[in-house]
């Protein structure tokens, strides 16, 4: 059964900033899904998105001495991931339009605009207890009704409803928290 993702300890962050390669795997396990959500949301190509994930963590490692271990690494990693996706996107554009010298390389598709929301939502999902996450994944990703979700997960309909309520409550709270942070 999948586990909810735990925050990276401050000790791990200090080890990462100090250049300990073992810390990278822990940070990868915590953030790789959200990083992939960003790169996949932007690029819409699985293999390119995975390449951008690799580039993200490699660039983070290269910049580790500048990382402030006292701060949440999430926004920092998000910025690197988005930049990595932009680089991959522009490289692919160069390949696709070698003769089109007037191509506007600065233009990014709309998919890049929503990546911060996608990052936040993915983070909230990763932090959910697995039973709540399973319910909303089945509902949204598979498009099942609550009755179908109950049958698929082998739980009572009331259980699906209560888990769904708690999961959405968590997401609504996340949105309120975002508003406070940006107010």
């Amino acid at each position: 059964m999948p586990k909810s993702t735990r925050p990276v300890s401050s000790r791990t962050l200090r080890r990462f900033a100090a250049g300990d390669p073992e810390a990278v795997r822990e940070i990868y396990e915590r953030y790789s899904k959200a990083v992939f959500t960003v790169t996949y949301s932007a690029l819409r190509d699985r293999s390119l998105a995975e390449e951008a994930v690799q580039a993200t963590f490699l660039q983070a490692w290269r910049a580790s001495s500048r990382f402030d271990a006292e701060r949440d690494p999430g926004p920092w990693l998000y910025a690197i991931a988005r930049r990595a996706a932009v680089d991959v996107h522009r490289r692919e554009r160069r390949h696709q339009s070698r003769e089109a010298f007037d191509t506007d390389m600065a233009a990014l598709p709309e998919t890049f605009e929503q990546t911060w929301e996608a990052w936040q939502i993915r983070q909230a999902i990763d932090e959910m207890p697995p039973d709540q996450r399973d319910v909303i994944k089945t509902t949204y990703f598979l498009g099942l009704t609550q009755e179908e979700t109950a049958r698929k997960l082998g739980v009572a309909l009331g259980t699906v409803k209560s888990r769904s309520h708690r999961a959405h409550q968590r997401l609504a709270a996340m949105l309120a928290h975002l508003d406070e942070a940006t107010a």
């Binding site: 100090a18 250049g19 390669p21 990278v24 795997r25 990868y28 396990e29 790789s32 899904k33 992939f36 959500t37 996949y40 949301s41 819409r44 699985r46 998105a49 995975e50 994930v53 690799q54 963590f57 490699l58 660039q59 490692w61 290269r62 910049a63 580790s64 001495s65 500048r66 996608a118 939502i121 993915r122 999902i125 994944k137 949204y140 990703f141």
Partner: peptide
């Protein structure tokens, strides 16, 4: 994209890729 995950072997590729790169190389 919200539910997608990178392939499991990407973790090993990341760890392998940093092994030849000193931290703070950038």
């Amino acid at each position: 994209a919200i539910w997608a995950e990178p392939a499991p072997h990407i973790a090993d590729l990341v760890v392998a890729s940093i092994s030849g790169v000193p931290p703070g190389a950038g």
